[in-house]
Amino acid sequence: MPAGSGATAAPGRGARELGAAAHHLIALRVENRSGVLVRVAGLFSRRGFNIVSLAVAPTDDERFSRISIVVDADSAPLQQVVDQLDKLINVVSIRELSPAEAEQAELLLATVAVAIGSRDAVHLETLAAAAAAEVVDSDGQATTVRLAGTPEALDAFEDALRPYGIVELQRTGRIALPKLGRRGLG
């Protein structure tokens, strides 16, 4: 799959633990070529490193894509993950971003079992407004809401939605850029 395809993966359980200390965020700048994502993902599987979430998309420079990976640091020493990734020819630069030095964001879409016009719909709209989420779709059976924000805000919102009955939920995985004043990634 081309790295620029925008593919994402965010397993629900792992995503719930994004704030945990054992998770590290690694930001890769890679050549925008076919097969790059396979090489990165293959390296993780080959070396027994666990991916919590993965987000890939082209950057402003069409020659490169950015891959943001949240790594389960208990599965391997972080330095070893970085050193092995560095050996991939298509990986141009690597930066480990700790939560303190990164501006992080993630997107969530959730469909909950709340019918349009129902009493729950009012509560849901109040909840969404308070979380700065948007109701983007609804019908006689369900409502879909969208929230962009920090992983922690998404965790909290997901918990708040649960009593309404989550029908489907998709998160994109974390993306991040270094906080200003701490830049260094090429």
Binding site: G35, R39, G42, K87, L88, I89, N90
Partner: peptide, 14 residues
């Protein structure tokens, strides 16, 4: 072939 050999080459090219 490139998929099969990706993990056992330094690099491969199609």
């Amino acid at each position: 072939t490139t998929g099969i050999t990706a993990g056992i080459t330094k690099h491969n090219w199609l």
